[in-house]
Design a protein around this nucleic acid. Structure first.
Length: 555
RNA sequence: GCGCCUGUAGCUCAGAUGGAUAGAGCAACGGACUUCUAAUCCGUAGGCCGCAGGUUCGAAUCCUGCCAGGCGUACCA
C-alpha cells in the first residue's frame, strides 16, 4: 500500500518537473508515513517540505503542484489534501483494505514474514549462565529476549541457530567443587569454615547430600584435589541438568550446548594466542601475556594468560567467538546482562583482530530485573544464596505470563517484575488481555459453527463488502501494519515492538467486540465478520508465537 | 575520574529510525452485562518530554554542556 502511494507521488513529481512546474529534478528519498490520527488520513508524506530548499518554493506550493499532476488510475484514493505546513494526506477507500484479509487467511502461519534474511546464517547465543547455580529471573529475561529474537529472525528468513555456552572449566567451577566438598565434609560432622567466596546457597548442601547417597564417605579418603574435582564435575552436571529442565519448561530449545572445555581440548585457545602473537598484537608484561585490545579501540590492554600460567576467561571467549565465525555464521549475536557491557570493546577487538568485521558481531544488553511481590521488592542476595529461581517464577505465574511480561519492555530499560501482577487475571496483566482475544474469537467461531457457518477462511467478495463499520476498517488497517512491525522488530532485534503491537490490536478487537455483534441474523454480514475476526485470531496467534507465548482456544 | 545505559502523566512504560494537537496501561472519578466469554468496553481528568543552549521549515527524537539515577571500570566470570 505504501509502495503504491510512493509510486503515485514519484510519478506526479516527475511529471511536474517535465512540464516545467518544478525547477529541480532532484527528488529526495520519499518518506511515506502512516498517520497517527484519522484526521490526517491513512498515509501522509512530507515530500514537499523536504523539497522546499532545493526547489526554492514554499512547501504548500510544491504540494499543490504535485497534486496537480497526481493521477489515481485505480481509484485507490477517496481524498487527497494538503494540510499543516505542507503535508499531503492520503485517504484510502475502504474497499482497498479488504484484500489484506484475504492475504492473512491465505498466508496464514506465514503472514507477516518478509524475507529480509535471505538465508543468512546467524548464531544467537543467550542465557549461557555458569553451571554453578540455578537460573534466576534475570536469566529468564535473557532467555525470553534471546529466544524471541531468534524466532523473529528465523521468521524473517534468517538461518538461525541458538546456542548456550557452558563455562565448564576454570576457576568458578573449581570453587563450586570446593563449596560442595566442604558441605560434604560438614555432613560427616567435620568442623569446617565456609569461606565467603564459596557458593552460599542451600542447593550446595543438597548436592553434597546427593554425593553422600552415592558414595557414602568415600571422598573423605581421597586426596583433596581429586575429591574437589569429583564434586565439581558432579555438581556442574547436576546443575546443568536443572538449567536444561528449567529452560525446557520455559519453552526454550537450544540447537547446541557448547562447552568451554572443548576449546581447550581441541587446542583452539592456544591457537588463538599463537595467531595473535604472529600478528604482533600479543606481548608479555609483568609475567603475564597481554592482548593489545587498545589497537582496536579498547581503553586498556587485556590479559589472556595470567602470571600463574592459567588462561583467562577472555582467552577462551576469543577462541569461542572465532569458532562461531569459522563454523560459517555470518552474523553473531550475544545476549548479555547489562552489567557485562564493559566487556564489549575487548570482545569486538578480538573479532576485528581475527579479521572479521565488527558489525558482524552484535551484543544485546538486557537490563536487570527487579523482582517484586505486590509492589514490594523481593529480597535477593546472590551472595547469601537467597534468591527466587526462574523455576519458582515459572511454577508460580506460568511460562506464558513470564515470557510475555519479560517482553513488555525494551530490553534496554530495567524491568519491574511483579509476581502478584503476573498472576492477576485483569486488565493490569497484558498477557491475558491479548490471549483473551484469541480465546474469545475461538468461542465465537464455535458458536458460528453451531449456526452452520463453517468456511470462515474463504474469500467472498460480496460478503467482505459488508464490512463498513469504522471499527472494522480500523481492525484491517491494524493488521495490514503487522508485517511492517515484524520487519522492524527483526531489524532492530526488538521483540517488545510485537508485544506492544499485540496489545494495541487486542484493544481494537475488544472495542469492536463490545460495540458490534459478530453473529447476526444476516448471513452475509455474519460471514464477513467471522472472516474478519478469524483473521484477527491468526495475527494474534502469529505474534504470540514469535514471543514464545501460547494462544489458547479457551480461557 | 573515565566509559556505557536511563530520565516522558501520580505510578509503570511506548513513541514507528526528525513531522502535524506527545500516546497506552495502572491508580482516581463517572458509566455499560437477560446478548458471541465483564479476564471486556465507553467517558472524564492528568504533561516546561531532567535542565540550558545549538543544528532546521520542524526536535521527546540529532549535537554540546550541565543535573540526577543505575551499571561498569580485574592477572573474576
Amino acid at each position: 500500500m505504501k509502495q503504491k502511494i510512493r509510486n503515485l507521488i514519484l510519478q506526479a513529481a516527475k511529471e511536474a518537473f517535465q512540464k516545467g512546474d518544478l525547477p529541480a529534478s532532484q527528488f529526495p528519498c520519499v518518506e511515506i508515513e502512516e498517520s497517527k490520527i484519522a484526521l490526517h488520513g491513512d498515509f501522509s508524506t512530507n515530500i514537499s517540505m523536504v523539497m522546499a530548499a532545493t526547489q526554492k518554493m514554499s512547501p504548500r506550493k510544491i504540494a499543490e503542484l504535485i497534486l496537480k499532476h497526481m493521477h489515481d488510475p485505480d481509484g485507490l484514493l477517496s481524498k487527497i489534501e494538503i494540510a499543516g505546513p505542507g503535508f499531503i494526506n492520503f485517504f484510502i477507500k475502504p474497499s482497498f483494505w479488504y484484500p489484506f484479509l484475504r492475504e492473512i487467511h491465505e498466508t496464514n502461519l506465514a503472514y507477516g514474514a518478509t524475507d529480509i534474511g535471505q538465508g543468512e546464517k546467524v548464531l544467537i547465543e543467550f542465557v549461557s549462565a555458569n553451571p554453578t547455580g540455578p537460573l534466576h529471573v534475570g536469566h529468564g529475561r535473557g532467555a525470553a529476549v534471546g529466544d524471541s529474537v531468534a524466532n523473529i529472525l528465523s521468521f524473517c528468513g534468517y538461518d538461525v541457530k541458538r546456542e548456550y555456552y557452558i563455562n565448564d572449566s576454570g576457576r568458578q567451577i573449581n570453587t563450586l567443587g570446593r563449596s560442595v566438598f566442604l558441605r560434604y565434609k560438614e555432613l560427616f560432622g567435620q568442623n569446617i569454615e565456609f569461606p565467603q567466596d564459596c557458593y552460599q546457597g542451600d542447593y550446595i548442601v543438597d548436592l553434597a547430600v546427593k554425593i553422600r547417597e552415592d558414595l557414602n564417605g568415600d571422598l573423605l579418603s581421597r586426596c583433596e584435589d581429586d575429591a574437589i574435582a569429583y564434586c565439581a564435575r558432579f555438581a556442574a552436571e547436576n546443575i546443568l541438568n536443572g538449567i536444561q529442565a528449567d529452560l525446557e519448561s520455559f519453552g526454550v530449545h537450544f540447537d547446541q550446548w557448547y562447552c568451554e572445555q572443548s576449546l581447550y581440548d581441541s587446542g583452539k585457545v592456544d591457537q588463538v594466542i599463537e595467531n595473535f602473537s604472529k600478528k604482533n598484537i600479543i606481548y608479555k608484561k609483568d609475567g603475564a601475556i597481554w592482548f593489545k585490545t587498545t589497537e582496536y579501540g579498547d581503553e586498556k590492554d587485556r590479559v589472556v594468560v595470567r602470571t600463574n600460567g592459567q588462561t583467562t576467561y577472555f582467552a577462551s571467549d576469543i577462541a569461542y567467538h572465532q569458532d562461531k565465525f569459522e563454523r560459517g555464521f555470518n552474523r553473531v549475536i550475544d545476549v548479555w546482562g547489562a552489567d557485562h557491557h564493559g566487556y564489549i570493546p575487548r570482545m569486538a577487538a578480538s573479532i576485528a583482530a581475527a579479521g572479521y568485521h565488527v558489525n558482524q558481531f552484535h551484543v544485546i544488553l538486557v537490563q536487570l530485573v527487579n523482582l517484586l511481590r505486590g509492589g514490594e521488592p523481593v529480597a535477593m542476595s546472590t551472595r547469601a544464596g537467597e534468591f527466587v529461581t526462574l523455576e519458582n517464577v515459572i511454577s508460580e505465574v506460568g511460562s506464558d505470563a513470564a515470557r510475555f511480561l519479560f517482553l513488555t519492555r525494551h530490553y534496554d530499560s530495567p524491568l519491574d517484575f511483579d509476581l502478584e501482577l503476573a498472576k492477576k487475571k485483569t486488565n493490569d496483566n497484558p498477557v491475558f488481555y491479548v490471549q483473551y482475544v484469541h480465546a474469545r474469537i475461538a468461542s465465537i467461531a464455535a458458536k458460528g459453527l453451531e449456526k452452520g457457518i463453517q468456511d470462515v477462511s474463504c474469500w467472498n467478495e460480496a460478503a467482505v463488502a459488508m464490512l463498513k463499520e469504522p471499527e472494522e476498517i480500523q481492525l484491517i488497517k491494524n493488521m495490514a501494519r503487522y508485517p511492517e512491525i515484524i520487519r522492524q522488530s527483526a531489524e532492530f532485534m526488538e521483540p517488545h515492538r510485537i508485544t506492544f503491537y499485540l496489545m494495541n490490536l487486542a484493544a481494537s478487537f475488544h472495542a469492536y467486540y463490545n460495540k458490534h455483534r459478530v453473529l447476526t441474523d444476516e448471513y452475509l454480514l455474519t460471514h464477513a465478520r467471522l472472516y474478519l475476526v478469524s483473521a484477527v485470531k491468526k495475527v494474534i496467534r502469529n505474534g504470540l508465537t514469535l514471543l514464545g507465548v501460547s494462544a489458547p482456544e479457551r480461557m
